[in-house]
Amino acid sequence: MYDFAYHRPSSVADAVKLLASDPDAKVMSGGMTLIPTLKQRLAKPSAIVDLSGIKDLVGISVSGSAVTIKAMTTHAAVAASAEVKKAIPALAAMAEHIGDAQVRNRGTIGGSIANHDPAADYPGAVLALGATVHTNKRKIAADDFFTGMFSTALAPDEIVTAVEFPIPEKAAYVKFPNPASRYAMVGVFVAKGPAGVRVAVTGAGANGVFRHTAMEEALAKNWSPDALHDVGTAEEGLNGDIHASKEYRAHLVGVMAKRAVAKAG
């Protein structure tokens, strides 16, 4: 990797200050994408602002209506949390199948959604559950947060501090992993809750996570896998590569969605 300055602030305010003072600085949470990118010399930041020293950014709290996960909470912690398992079992189960054990022990929810890798799992949960993203500046609704592949509504000096998930009545996530990378080639998160029926598709879209409104309408009328039988998925806007054509991905969106509804019960 190229040389860079390394900062490990102990507060969000200090981290923001460092970012504001240097437009070429990069925030690092778990580093699960950034570090490989640096090692391959695909990024040349002037400085890394490592959030791992900020104790305030770790933790899970559950109220009667919401689960709030602070940004630097690891996937492993979410997967193991008895509270999350009880309140939103689909979220804990999803976290349990991100990457491998090493990734789950380093990777964080804040890092995952701020990076918005189109094949990441968390964006599906955030969008389907209608979560609210808390930052040092504001609260952003999930529908406004993801703006495109590797792109979000975050400003350069804005840091995700927590994600607040309304507790759904039913939810489940099913993914079809890419055979090589095991990232989601298609992942569908379905939820029925305070915000109505929401279906989010990750892995398949060229612009990252998206809501499948046709499926939402069908499921709102009839919450069952059969309701999705005749709901197609447009190939336009999907990814196609050596592992899966757009056509196959579109098909898998339907299969994964049905399986997710069945799993949600």
């Binding site: 890419n178 055979p179 090589a180 990378s181 990232y183 050596i242 592992h243």
Partner: peptide, 9 residues
Amino acid sequence: LSGSMMDYT
């Protein structure tokens, strides 16, 4: 195209 573990299974 299959030049890494991301794409070579």
